[in-house]
Each structure stands twice: as C-alpha cells, then as structure tokens.
Nucleic acid binder design. Structure first.
Length: 556
RNA sequence: GGCCUCAUCGUCUAGCCUGGCUUAGGACACCACCCUUUCAAGGUGGCUACAGGGGUUCAAAUCCCCUUGGGGUCACCA
C-alpha cells in the first residue's frame, strides 16, 4: 500500500446532472484546504450507479470546476488537469480492486451473501415504518441459510448481494467540525457492500478508494454524517487508516427547503398548475410528454425543454447549478467568494476575498455548524460590486466572451463601436453580465422590427400632457438631425441647448422619456444620451419617424 | 417515530473555545431622505437578533441541564 505523507483531499461527485452549488462548495473547500497546506486535491468520479451515470455529465462537472478556478492534481484528464498514479479515477473502472477486498471480507467471515429480493425487503421496511421504527436488516435470516445452500445458489446464479457483518457495539465518530459523536450499538445494520449487479455500493467504494488513493481528509456534506459510521467500521474490518472527517453544513433555499436540482421543475409545475394548464404551451413539449411530466413530481424536463417552458409561462427559473449562474452572468470569483461565505468566514467582518485568500486562510475550526440559506439577492450585490471594481477593459472582455457564448445573434447585430458605447454606459449599473443583453434588446432589433409596448407607461410618455410626448418628439427629431457630433456629450449639448430655449431646462424628463420610448419601444434603457449614441443617428431618426407614424395612425 | 446533530438581526455572519472590553459588530435586504432623464447605480440616516426556562458565577450571547424548534439519516442512490 502506498503511503503518502502529505495532505490529500478529494471531491467525489456522482456524474448525474450538473454540478450544483452545494457540490461546488464542497469541492471549493476541499480544494482550498489542500492548496493552502501544500497538499493534493483529487477528483474522483463515483459512477457505480449504472442507471444514473453518464459521460456527458462528468464532462460538465469538469468544465464547471475549471470555470470556478478549481483545478485538480489527480483525476480525470481534462484541459491540463488530472492524471495521477492512483487511477483509475472512475470507480466503474476499479471493480477488480473492490472485488479483491470484497473477497477478503467474505473469506474472513466479515461479510456474507444475502438473497433477499427487493420486494421482500420492501415489505419489511413498510412494517418497520408502520411501527414507527427505524428499519434494520435482520441478520438471523441470512444466518439460517447453510453455507452449502449459499454455494449452491451462487452456482445456479441466484441474484445475491454481499452484506457487511457490522460488529456489535457503539461506533465513535470524530469530526473536525461537529466534534465527537457516538452512534449507539445497533444503529448501523448489515448494509449492502456489493450490489447484485456486481458493483460495490457507495460505502464500500469510498472506503477502498480513500485508502488506496491516500486520502487524509474528507470534507463532505452533513447528510453523510451517519454514513461515516459505516465507513469507520469498514475501515476497521479492512485494516485501513482513517481519514480526518469534516461534515459541512447544508445549503438551503431561502424558504428553508433543501436546494435541489428538481427546484426548476417544481416551479414550472406549480406555475402550470396555478394557470390550470391542460395542454402544453406552444413551442414547448408535446402533449403526452407534458401530461406525464405534470403528473409525476419526480420527472424532470431537460435544459432546453425547461427553458422553453419558462419562456412560455413567462417566469424566471432559479439558478441551481454552477452552469446556471454562469449563464446568468455571475463572475466565477464572486461565486467562489459567496459560496465560501455560506458556511465559512475568515472573521474580522471580512467578507470579500479571492481564492488565494481562501486557500491561505481556510480552516476547519471556522466552518459553520448550521445550514445556510442561499441568498441570491446578496450574491447579486456581490456581483455588482465586483463588476464595478473591474477595469473597463476587463469588463469589456468578459461581456464580449459572455455575449459570444450566450447571445451570439445580439453580438452579430451590433458594431464594435456600438458595443464599446454599450459597455461604457452599462459598466456601473450591471449586476450581471447577462443583464446588459437582456436589458437592451431594443438594440439588437432592426429599425423596422421595433414595436411599441402597449402599456400605461408608454402611453403616458407619448400621449399625455400638452404638448404631448409625440409633439415633443416631432420637434426633437429636427434637433437630433442637426447634431454634428453624434456622441453622448454631443447629443446632450444640442438637446440641452434646445431645452433651454424651449423653457424645459429643468424638465429634462419631458424630453428624455418620449425620446426613450420613441427609439427603444419601452420606458427603460440606459441614460438617454447614451442610448441615442449607441443606436446611431440614422437608426434614431428612423425609429422616431416610425413611432410618430405608428401612433398617428393608432389614434385615428 | 428511533438515532445523530444544530440554534445570534428577514438572510449570510462577527463575538462563544480562553465568561466581564457588548447599551451584541459587519454585510445584504428593508424603510426614510438626497441625487436623478426611465430603470438602475450612488450618497446619508434608520429599523431589526443572543429560541424559552432553569442552573453555575460577583458577572453569561459566551459554561452546564431541560424544553422547544430546525436539520440529517433510517436504499441493491451517491
């Protein structure tokens, strides 16, 4: 057995779905803990559940981790990360190793074959439940089967699992975050260590891998706390070393529910039900799929379906996965910072820090014991702050990269000069990178495609008062046409000059709003002189013309 | 329900280990006002918490016990 003296941590996700924020924080803490102490951070893919594993998902994980700035010394090879002497780092490729130890336990009489069917066990579980008792596997039934019978059944290929013969006695767990705990005797039953399909269960694979990979410190979510007892007894039976454990508090939704991948479907389903939909909205999914999904609380739409559904129902889906936050335009360093802050803090009222600081200062004694509710509003505030502190060049580069991935058609529609103006006008006010695109759709629209919202605000800006907004617009058109230098400052100068002569110097709003609505179709946009400058002179004039025309005919 | 575990503003948290420096600090949110060309952003000010009850002590948010409340877990999922 290879002994590695230095500190080694690991992150061991199962490749189902995307990396969500809870997993990301676990990875971040393990990474920072190792990095800050000259240790190694290992990434291992726990793909022993054949039903749930998919290659695509594990690549998604790798991409997400990279984006966050979390790199791994050992693990799957991806963009310069990974490799290592303790592979494979996919559990599905380590069956020989597990089997070796499995056999050892059976031979030593520390584990045994069991032939119960799922149906039989389900009945027992239900009975336990009805008696309000915790379910424990009854070893006596397995004991009643003679060794000869076991061999005979195995020979004829009867479906069997291997269960661990959990020793009697209380089990002590030491945890660097929660302290010591003792599970009373009988709390851990003879759990399955090899499934009927020949794959080890999570418990067994974890214990073997952590030993073989020389993992010294295990930081994982608190939901694993009870599992640790199983791992400890297995380690003892196999003569393995025991890593140091630290169980991290969970991350919850603001309403206190567990943050889950299913939250998106939950919201969609609820909205569909509230709206009493019986058929799928247009351009989403077909009717069969829709009714099946609506009726089954556990079914999930894929990303494209969910997005289409959200658009059709006019709701925003909550960000759950790291990729969702990336898509929404959060900066990776902000994600790391905020994730770390949910469950850990450096003290001294310090709450903004980078990953280097985290590595240097992360320690288990400051990890919170209680679950944190994930506050997206505070995250938004952090993101805004980070964006504002970015040099203009850096911000511009990030927006460009974001736009090219998530809004390619928008990027194609505008010129480099327009882009620069838009960035300049948006830098101080953007909470996310995506906001800049979502808030300025008017810009990506062709002059002839623009339509005007039929809303109270629009009507007020254009039709109310004497003279009305439309009347102002007619006058302003001439003013704009005469502007010599079409820049924010140049436009402002001309308009202010005209405003002064028209006695409107103090009421710029009466000018700005009709203009804004005229050229964007809505009442919200960047400051008006920026808006006009970005749009360009000919587009601005054309849109004003169309607006005047549109509302002239609308009125009659 | 059994077992394990946790408990400071609405939220994330500082203080707790090593009781007095705390009329409990910061941040986000919220409220008010200011600025203002919409939405934001920005500025100023304000509101808000030691779950409850017993101990120990000259002194408790800090130590102990109970209650209450929360969470985790009880799979051939990880």
């Amino acid at each position: 057995m290879t002994h590695t003296p230095s500190l080694r941590t690991r992150f061991a996700p199962s490749p189902s779905g995307h990396l969500h924020v809870g997993g990301a924080r676990t990875a971040l803490f393990n990474w920072a803990f190792a990095r800050g102490r000259g240790g190694k951070f290992i990434l291992r893919i726990e793909d022993t559940d054949q039903k749930r594993s998919s290659d695509a998902a594990s690549v998604g994980f790798l991409k997400d981790l990279k984006w966050l700035g979390i790199d791994w010394n050992e693990g799957p090879e991806f963009e310069g990360c990974g490799g290592g002497d303790f592979g494979s780092y996919f559990q599905s490729e380590r069956l020989d190793m597990y089997n070796k130890f499995l056999e050892q336990l059976v031979q030593q009489g520390k584990a045994y074959y069991a032939f119960d069917t799922t149906a039989e066990l389900d009945v027992e579980r239900k009975e336990s439940k009805s008696r309000n008792e915790a379910y424990r596997y009854d070893r006596s039934r397995a004991d009643a089967i003679s060794p000869e019978q076991v061999q005979a059944w195995l020979k004829e290929g009867k479906s069997a699992v291997i269960r661990f013969k959990t020793p009697a006695g209380a089990i002590a767990i030491h945890d660097e975050i929660l302290g010591d705990a003792t599970l009373p005797a009988g709390e851990v039953d003879d759990f399955v260590i090899r499934k009927a399909d020949g794959f080890p269960t999570y418990h067994f694979a974890v214990v073997v891998d952590d030993e073989l990979m020389g993992v010294t410190t295990v930081l994982r979510a608190q939901e694993h706390f009870n599992n640790t007892a199983k791992h400890v007894v297995l380690q003892d039976a196999l003569g393995f070393r025991r890593p140091t454990y630290g169980h991290l508090p969970l991350i919850f939704n603001p309403d206190g529910s567990k943050m889950s991948k299913r939250d998106k479907d939950k919201l969609l389903r609820k909205t569909a039900q509230d709206k009493k939909l019986t058929a799928p909205p247009a351009n989403t999914v077909d009717a069969t799929r829709f009714s099946a999904w609506l009726g089954d609380k556990n079914s999930q739409l894929d990303f494209a379906e969910a997005t289409a559904m959200a658009t059709a129902l006019n709701i925003e889906l909550p960000e759950i996965n790291v990729d969702d936050f990336r898509r929404s335009g959060y900066l990776p360093q902000v994600m790391c910072n905020f994730l770390a802050l949910n469950g850990w803090g450096p003290g001294n009222d310090l709450e903004k820090f980078d990953n280097a600081f985290l590595c240097a200062n992360f320690a288990l004694d400051r990890v919170q014991k209680t679950a944190a509710k994930f506050d997206r509003v505070k995250l938004l505030a952090f993101n805004l702050d980070a964006i504002q502190k970015l040099p203009r060049e850096a911000f511009s580069g990030l927006v460009k990269a974001h736009g090219e991935i998530y809004h390619p058609e928008f990027m194609k529609k505008i010129t480099a000069a327009q882009f620069d103006l838009l960035v300049a006008a948006s830098h101080e006010r953007s909470k996310t990178l995506d906001e800049l695109f979502r808030g300025n759709r008017w810009l990506a629209l062709g002059d002839e495609e623009l339509t005007w919202e039929k809303s109270k605000q629009v009507e007020k800006a254009l039709l109310a008062g004497t003279p009305s907004g439309l009347d102002r617009l007619k006058e302003l058109r001439g003013v704009l046409e005469a502007v010599a230098t079409w820049t924010p400052a140049g436009i402002e100068e001309s308009i202010r000059q005209w405003a002064t002569t028209a006695g409107l110097a103090e009421q710029i709003g009466q000018i700005a709003q009709p203009l804004r609505v005229g050229v964007t179709g809505s009442t919200v946009s960047p400051p008006i002189f920026d808006t006009l400058a970005i749009l360009g002179k000919s587009s601005s004039l054309r849109r004003i013309d169309r607006c005047l025309q549109d509302f002239a005919t609308a009125k009659t």
